[in-house]
């Protein structure tokens, strides 16, 4: 189950600048920590985050281990047309998780 929370306004007027937020449960294990008995905990981080709007990429982020666990990001978008805002996170093992929200633009 994808444990992700995204925030997209349900409605907006064409041309409005809207606030988008996305957060996903992920340990963002840095690879710099030792577990019990001094064993290094292997790195496991989300490296890529993409937001699409009407199928087009509108925001992209590359993450390093210094991004906090359960990564949170907020950014803006111009509401241009009704459609789907899609979110996709990819970790360094190639696993992807996604979420989406619909927006009605009048």
């Amino acid at each position: 189950m994808t444990k992700a929370l995204v925030s997209v306004p349900k409605t907006a007027r064409r041309g409005d600048i809207i606030d988008i937020r996305a957060m996903i449960a992920h340990p963002m294990e840095t690879g710099y920590r030792m577990g019990p008995n001094g064993v290094e905990i292997p790195r496991r981080i989300i490296t890529r985050f993409v937001c699409t709007y009407g199928g087009e990429e509108v925001f992209f982020a590359e993450f390093f281990p210094a991004v906090s666990a359960n990564p949170f990001v907020s950014f803006s978008l111009i509401a241009s047309a009704s459609g789907t805002v899609g979110f996709e996170w990819t970790d360094d093992q190639g696993q992807t998780e996604s979420a989406s929200a619909e927006i009605v633009v009048t």
Binding site: F59, V67, S74
Partner: peptide
């Protein structure tokens, strides 16, 4: 490195928030 963000005119405003270590 912490993060790199790619954006453009469709964002309307160049404002980003995140949480870092």
């Amino acid at each position: 490195d912490i993060a790199v963000f790619r954006l453009g005119p469709h964002n309307g405003r160049a404002r980003i928030a995140t949480r870092i270590r």
